[in-house]
C-alpha cells in the first residue's frame, strides 16, 4: 500500500479516532457526571469534549468512504518523494538532539546536531561548519546562563561547566 494522500487521510483519521477513545477512557477515571450537589466532575469536560473529537473523526471517515473530501480523492504521494529525505532526517536528528540534551547535555549535543545538519544540507566548507557548530552553543550558553540565569540541561557533561561557573561568579 502506497502512502498516498488518500491513504494518509484514513490512516490519520483512524489514529485520531483511537486517540479520542483513549482520551475518553483516561478521562473516565474521574467522575464524568454533572449533578447539582457534586458540581461538575473532574472528568466531565475532557470526556465529553473527547467524545466530540470522536464524532468529528467519524464524520471525516464517513466523508472519506463516500469520497466527499478533497483529500479522499487525492492519490498523489502524501510526502513529496524528493523531499522525503529532508523531512525524515530532520525529525530523526531532532529526536537525537533532544535525547542528547536529556542525557549528554544540550551544549555538547548542539555541536553534533549542527555539525551533522549543516554537513548534510548545506554546501558550506568544513571550517565554516565547525566554527558555526561550536560558536552557536557558546552564544547560547552566554545568553541563557549568563544573561538570563536559566540553566539548560547539562546531563553528564555538567562537570565540564564548573570551571566556567567559577569564572562567571
Amino acid at each position: 500500500m502506497k502512502l498516498t494522500t488518500r491513504n494518509a487521510e484514513i490512516f490519520v483519521a483512524v489514529i485520531l479516532a483511537l486517540c479520542s477513545i483513549g482520551l475518553m477512557i483516561k478521562a473516565a477515571q474521574n467522575s464524568i457526571t454533572w449533578t447539582i450537589e457534586d458540581n461538575m466532575g473532574a472528568g466531565f469536560m475532557p470526556f465529553w469534549l473527547s467524545l466530540g473529537m470522536l464524532i468529528c473523526t467519524i464524520i471525516t471517515i464517513f466523508k472519506w468512504v463516500i469520497r466527499k473530501s478533497p483529500q479522499s480523492n487525492n492519490n498523489e504521494p502524501f510526502i513529496d518523494p524528493e523531499a522525503n529525505k529532508y523531512v525524515y532526517v530532520t525529525i530523526l536528528s531532532l529526536i537525537g538532539l533532544i535525547l542528547g540534551t536529556a542525557y549528554v547535555g544540550i551544549y555538547i549535543s548542539l555541536i553534533f546536531f549542527l555539525f551533522f545538519y549543516l554537513k548534510n544540507f548545506s554546501e558550506k566548507s568544513n571550517l565554516f561548519i565547525s566554527v558555526f557548530s561550536i560558536a552557536t552553543p557558546i552564544v547560547t550558553f552566554c545568553f541563557f546562563e549568563w544573561l538570563l540565569k536559566i540553566t539548560l540541561p547539562q546531563g553528564i557533561s555538567e562537570p565540564l561547566f564548573y570551571p566556567i561557573y567559577e569564572l562567571m561568579y
Binding site: L97, K124, I150
Partner: peptide, 30 residues
Amino acid sequence: FAILAPVIFVLCVTGGYAPTQSIHDVWLML
C-alpha cells in the same frame, strides 16, 4: 535557509525548555 533551519530548531528546543524548565515539554513540542 540551510543555516537558518537548524538555528530555528535550536531556538525551538531552548524555547520549549525555558518556560517550565522541563525536558518533558521539549518532547511534547516535537
